[in-house]
Design a protein around this nucleic acid. Structure first.
Length: 768
DNA sequence: GAGCACTGC
């Protein structure tokens, strides 16, 4: 791919024109973005000197970090933000990293006493963000974590009845909607990182918009009801209509009922239990890091938009002068050029995956010896999700003296992990992206160009601590040709799980649901069809009892169906164990230089019947040594992964017990039943061996290959089932087990005989 | 012969 002559650094870069060069002074983010954001910490509507209820009277110890808080760019905009929030049902706040919007805005609301009728929820796409933000804010507020400020993420709940401000994952808020459909416990919901457009934030957009409308209507109805009651009371007493609401005007405005009702809340006439209950409007605050706020604002009924300056240093952007035919080679040359010619500061290189990272790691390691004797040394740090945690942690260690760190990372460094000390970013302009073709039901994982907003996000990674430099390994024309934003996840994934969630939350017509970006009709129909074939929906499209049962579990519908059938097949213990392990991406670790040993270790657990029973063997072996970490190390088992699987297992067992299903029913050594059980959820993901030794999928008649990481790679069995069908370099099936061909029609007679589901599929056993 | 990143009562 390269040779040592290319070590001579070529001048690949030039300071590009103003649009990409050093940003104008008015650009608050330093990334050279168009300066649509007005100058100053915040500008949009002047601050109004409204009198506010007394500040945080609940603090139990003196507030911490007060001086720090006041230095945050957002602090000066406090009053204007509060003003906008009070006057608008929905507000969009655009603020770059470092503006403090996520930690401060909820505190402003708390301190101002605005969350009168319920709590404040702040959603995050990632667990670590939710927990660390809550920890930080609890410290600033000066109360123990889990009291006034807390968090809720899967497996970990640090909240209590006294929690007023709660950070939670977006998935967790979705689950809360299932038990509290109008989210009455919240007065304010802040959706953070909205620009990431994860599947869950997008679904939440629609759900929250509906909840907001419903609550607003309820509020109006309650007020009207209250007024009518007053009128009839007064009439009975023989006096005129209530003085504060003469004529037909039913809007009670600021007139309080018992001193507690304002424009955005109304007391219920009767709350059944005699306790006064308040219906209050839901305030929605969308927080985004990109300047594309108009779309969010338009979606949320012309929400007010506020811009907040970030605390980001300027970053000089350089584009490649000519297109690079080999971005990996270009990254190699450019990184050495920076190392030999530029001042101190670590280099972050964005690549697409493990293989590229390991290739470049080897190239750089080989050339390290050729560095001039007087030059600084380099330390190469790979960073990707599948990397064992101990090695991942190395990127946070400061480099030894006179050494420059070169971090080779995937997308993980774009949003999930923030690295200190980066002054130089090398952007290849590509990433690996998941896709889904709903026509043929095939997932894909392919290298694609990134979007402009992604490129800006990568650029920003160079300016967190000082003036930075970003080298884009593509021309300025190529940059201009990139899509403005990445395709939202909802447009490129299987929607079965999301549709099941929507149905469970009471959305009857998922085709007409108010999506910010509406998925193609075909994708929604395919999801409905899949749920119907699993008997989660009846032939009117309504949720069946089984469907309701399935939605209780934090599982994809196929797995929930398998779990359900395990009762009839008496193998619930085994199914829970296997499903838990399947939720771990990299159960076996394979360090770069120890592939052979790792494979050998895995062979100890292999079941001839495939991956599912191999996983079961692994768990049994792990339990036999009582979860010894050393054992994990010796056997190349991802200890953290298996720990996670055990938490999933515990949770699944709890939910099972809650819904009246015994998790301890085991099939003993009759493991055929386990695989039969899997077929009940995966009959549409099966393939039959062909005379020429290839496999052809039962649905769609696609030629598929068994993935090399599967234990059944290179083996020939009559029929197989698979959990995933992914196109990468070839069309691969992953998570594969051998089955008997006659199990397939048995598992779903109606579906497969007719090719398309036409009649209602009854669950194979009943639910009480 | 190969694995972007997240998440869930």
């Amino acid at each position: 791919m390269t040779n040592s002559t290319k070590f001579t650094p070529k001048k690949a870069f030039v300071n590009s024109p103003a649009s990409n060069g050093p940003p104008p002074a008015s650009s608050p983010n330093g990334t050279g973005l168009p300066s649509t954001a007005p100058a100053g910490p915040l500008a949009n509507g002047k601050p109004t000197p409204a009198t506010l209820p007394d500040p945080d009277k609940y603090a139990t110890v003196p507030r911490q970090h007060e001086a720090e808080r006041k230095r945050l760019p957002i602090y000066g905009a406090r009053q204007a933000i509060l003003d906008a929030i009070q006057r608008n049902a929905s507000v969009v706040i655009v603020g770059e990293t470092g503006s403090g919007k996520t930690t401060q805005i909820p505190q402003f609301i708390l301190e101002a006493g605005l969350a009168k009728y319920g709590g404040i929820a702040v959603t995050q796409p990632r667990r670590v963000a939710a927990t660390s933000l809550a920890r930080r804010v609890a410290e600033e507020v000066g109360t123990p974590l889990g009291k006034r400020v807390g968090y809720t993420v899967r497996f970990d709940d640090k909240s209590s009845p006294s929690t007023k401000l709660k950070y939670l994952t977006d998935g967790m808020l979705m689950r809360e909607i299932l038990s509290d459909p109008l989210l009455h416990r919240y007065n304010y919901i802040l959706l953070d990182e909205a620009h990431e457009r994860t599947l869950r934030t997008d679904i939440l957009f629609g759900m929250l918009k509906e909840i907001q409308q419903t609550r607003r209507q309820m509020c109006k109805d309650r007020k009207a009801q209250w007024y009518r009651q007053r009128v009839s009371d007064e009439a009975r007493r023989g006096s005129g209509p209530p003085a504060e609401a003469n004529g037909t005007d039913l809007d009670l405005g600021e007139h309080a009922v018992g001193g507690a009702v304002s424009t955005d809340a109304a007391e219920t006439i009767s709350a059944g239990n005699g306790q006064p209950r308040f219906v209050h409007e839901l305030k929605i605050i969308i927080m985004s890091a990109t300047l594309d706020a108009e779309r969010f604002a338009a979606y949320f009924d012309h929400a007010k938009i506020l811009y907040v300056a970030g605390r980001q240093f300027p970053v000089r952007v350089y584009n490649s002068l000519e297109p690079q035919t080999d971005y990996l080679d270009a990254a190699f040359v450019a990184s050495l050029q920076i190392h030999t010619e530029q001042g101190p500061g670590d280099i972050l290189i964005f690549l697409t995956g493990q293989e590229e990272i390991e290739t470049l790691e080897k190239l750089l390691t080989d050339h390290r010896a050729l560095l001039p004797r007087d030059a600084a040394d380099i330390l190469i740090c790979p960073l990707f999700a599948a990397l064992p945690p101990a090695q991942q942690a190395k990127v946070f260690n400061p480099a030894p003296p006179n050494t420059r760190k070169i971090i080779l990372a995937t997308n993980i460094a774009e949003t999930s992990i923030t690295l200190p000390g980066i002054r130089y970013v090398l952007d290849t302009g590509v990433h690996k992206a998941r896709g889904y073709n709903s026509k043929v039901g095939i997932e894909s994982l392919l290298v694609e160009p990134i979007s402009k907003s992604s490129a800006r996000q990568r650029t920003g990674r160079a300016g967190r601590e000082a003036l930075g430099f970003c080298y884009r390994l593509y021309t300025e024309d190529s940059f201009m040709a990139l899509e403005e934003d990445s395709v939202p996840e909802i447009l490129r994934c299987n929607l079965a799980a999301a549709v099941l969630q929507l149905k469970a939350a009471g959305v009857r017509d998922v085709l007409r649901f108010d999506y910010m970006d509406r998925p193609p009709k075909l994708a929604l129909l395919r999801a409905l069809e899949q749920l119907y074939s699993l008997a989660a929906l009846d032939d009117t499209g309504a949720l069946t009892k089984l469907g309701t049962w399935m939605a209780e579990f934090p599982l994809d519908p196929c797995y929930a169906k398998v779990l359900y059938e395990s009762r009839a097949l008496q193998c619930t213990t085994e199914i829970i164990d296997i499903i838990s392990l399947l939720s771990v991406d990299n159960l076996f670790v394979a360090p770069f230089h120890k592939r052979e040993e790792a494979n050998e270790a895995r062979n100890k657990f292999i079941s001839p019947d495939g991956d599912h029973l191999t996983y079961l063997n692994l768990l049994r072996a792990y339990q036999a040594v009582k979860g010894d970490i050393r054992w994990c190390h010796e056997n190349y088992v991802n200890a953290r992964g298996i720990q996670h699987a055990l938490e999933v297992r515990k949770q699944l067992r709890q939910v099972c017990t809650r819904v009246g299903m015994d998790p301890n029913v085991s099939c003993g050594v009759d493991l055929d039943r386990v695989l039969q059980c899997f077929v009940t959820g995966f009959f549409h993901q099966t393939a039959l061996l062909q005379p020429d030794g290839t496999y052809k999928s039962v649905i769609g008649s696609q030629f598929v290959r068994i993935h090399p990481a599967s234990t059944l790679f290179n083996s020939r069995r009559e029929a197989i089932l698979f959990n995933e069908l992914v196109f990468t370099t070839k069309l691969y099936v992953r998570g594969v087990s051998a089955i008997q061909a006659n199990w397939i029609p048995e598992a779903s007679p109606n579906y497969l005989k007719r090719g398309q589901p036409k009649s209602k599929l009854a669950p194979s056993s009943s639910i009480e």
